[in-house]
Structures are given as C-alpha cells and as structure tokens.
Amino acid sequence: MSESLASGNILGLLFVLLFVGLIVFFAIGGRKKELQPTREISAFIRLRRVIALAVESGKRLHLTLGSGGISGKEGASAVVGLTVLERFARVASVSDRPPIATSGDGTLAILSQDTVRKTLKTFGAESQYDPGFGQLSGLTPMGYAAGNIPLYYDEQLAATVYAGHFGSELALMIDAASQNEVMTLAGSDNLPGQAILYATSEQPLIGEELYATGAYLKAGPMHLASLQAQDVLRWILVMAIIIGAGLKFLGIL
C-alpha cells in the first residue's frame, strides 16, 4: 500500500481530506448559528434584484452553461451554472415564463432540462415544463455563440447569466445582450474568458467568485460551508507561498 502512494499523491489526498473536514466542520457550525458570506459582491445583489423583478415584469431569465463538458475540469463551473438554473426555475415556478438554459455540450443540455423539470415538479408546476427550456445551441465555441444570439432578439429576457467554461466567444453573446438591454452577469473558469467578461459584462465575476454563487443565492448550507472552507484553504496556501518564497530567498529551499 505504501508503494502505491507517492509523496505527491499523499499530499493531494491529505489536502482533499482536509477540505472535506473543513466543509463538515463549517456545516455543523452553521447549524448552530445563521452564517452569511463575509463580503457582499455587487453582481449577486443585482442578480437577486433582477430575479425578483423578472417575475413581476413577466420577462424570462436566461442561463448559458458554456461549451465545456461535465466530465473534464470544466465540469465544476457548469455544476455551478446548474445551481443558478435551479434557483431560476424556483422563482419561475410562480410565473408563466420559465427560464431558458442553453449550452454547447450535449450532456449539459440534458442536465439543464432535467434541472428545470425536477425543480418545476418539486413546486407542482411540472405542466409548465418543455424540453425546449434546455437547448443545445451549438457544438463549436463560435457556433454556440451564434446559436445563442437570436435569443436576445426573439425572447423578452430580463437577465442572462453566463456560468461555465467560456473563451473569447463570450464577447459576441454579451454584446448582443447589451444591445437588447439585457442585464449580463458572467463568470468563467477560463482565464482568457475572464479577461473578456471583465471588459464586456455589466456584472463580472472574477476568479473564484463564480464558485461562490450557490452561497450568495442561498442554495443551501453546504454551499456556505464549502465557501468558508475555501477561504481557510486560500489563506493556508497564501501562507505556504509566502513562507516558500522567503525560504527560497534565504537559500534554504
């Protein structure tokens, strides 16, 4: 057994176990007192307001999950997107305009349909469900962007959330949304995509802010617990980097 665990693997496994331990710790702590995210992010304040207003104004909410799949490292950002979709569908269950989700991957299209159907069913509004609420809009990044653009002209959208894996094609979609006065909130796990969304989106989510979406939209106590675990581990990593740089500077490492 010891031969099958290289030192790098042990460190990786320990890191994951520490992460799990911290999530469980904060989840148990969160049961005793109501915890809140430590800082406000303006994008989420605006999103909560737009979600509420969408029902009153009879407009639709749109979520797009990017062109990454679910089985690679891009999958995590898409899972975050599906959490947002679930919140959208909850709100829309009391309106007559369910949300639309688009994606550039077949698996994500199926998962988005399933998320909307499951949520509407939970709130007794399954009759509103239509498979067209989860669409595959294109299979290459540019084709995916081109497939999304008509939505901004044809549907009355209140807001579009971009949560997933995006590259430069994001600019085409956000530009079309802006021209139609649709509020845009965007987050990507891809660095070039983040640079693009910072320049183009009304409400950009930078770095790990995308992964905090569930906690800010009150998707459950585990979202808040994992966000707090992330914060603790970030500080541990920051300290390790500073100590490592110091030791290297002193010639010890």
């Binding site: 994951v16 992460f19 799990v20 999530i23 679910i70 490292k73 995590a76 950002s77 898409a78 899972v79 975050v80 599906l82 959490t83 998962l111 399933d114 998320t115 499951k118 796990d189 790990e208 995308l210 992964y211 905090a212 569930g214 459950g220 585990m222 979202h223 994992s226 966000l227 675990a229 992330q230 581990l233 970030r234 990593l237």
Partner: peptide
C-alpha cells in the same frame, strides 16, 4: 479551490445536477 469544493459537494451528495 472552487473546482475542488464543487466536486466535493457533488461527491457528498449535496449538489445533485443529475436528477
């Protein structure tokens, strides 16, 4: 860190993007 946190939530069964 965000990717690991999301993956762990799926593994713990608290995030269920699969119905």
């Amino acid at each position: 860190l965000g990717t690991i946190a999301t993956g762990l939530r799926v593994l713990m069964g608290t995030d269920r993007p699969y119905g």
